[in-house]
């Protein structure tokens, strides 16, 4: 079993096929899109492969240490940031091929005109625990 992160980008991924901004969809198309993702998660729960599902606000601020005794310093948000994460799903599956398969299903979520958005998802394996027997 291996865990994979499926990253959804607001910006920074290659353009999907049916790439129309969401505010130009009908309210019903938006509902269908969201319902599709909820159903996807439920389906993976029944197959025993679902770990988590989170969405992020697009608003973000940079923060860093600013020296002893000083409060952390913040900067941004930067409207021009190239890469913007929209959210993620984590799955726990038996193979990389299976991870690709479920990512493909998520990317088929319906968008404008009820057609799949073919959104590019970024897939990243988790680093695991080291195995005990290596020699």
């Amino acid at each position: 079993m291996a865990k994979y992160l499926l990253l959804k980008h607001y910006r920074g991924a290659p353009k999907g096929v049916n790439d129309v901004p969401m505010d130009q969809w009908t309210p019903e198309e938006i509902s269908n899109h969201i319902q599709y993702m909820v159903d996807w998660g439920k389906r993976l729960e029944t197959t025993g492969e679902f770990v988590e599902h989170y969405a992020l606000s697009p608003e973000g601020t940079f923060v860093r240490y600013d020296g002893e005794g000083r409060p952390p310093i913040t900067d941004g948000p930067f409207a021009e940031t190239k890469d913007l994460i929209a959210g993620w799903s984590v799955v726990d599956v038996d193979s990389y091929e299976r991870a690709l398969e479920v990512a493909g299903e998520l990317s088929a979520a319906p968008g404008k005109g009820g057609k799949p958005i073919h959104e590019w998802l970024e897939i990243r394996p988790f680093l695991t625990q080291p195995p005990t027997i290596t020699e």
Binding site: K3, E45, T47, G48, F50, D92
Partner: peptide, 10 residues
């Protein structure tokens, strides 16, 4: 490290 509901289904 998976949710209990997921393991129950598995």
């Amino acid at each position: 490290l998976v949710p209990e509901a997921t393991m129950a289904q598995r």
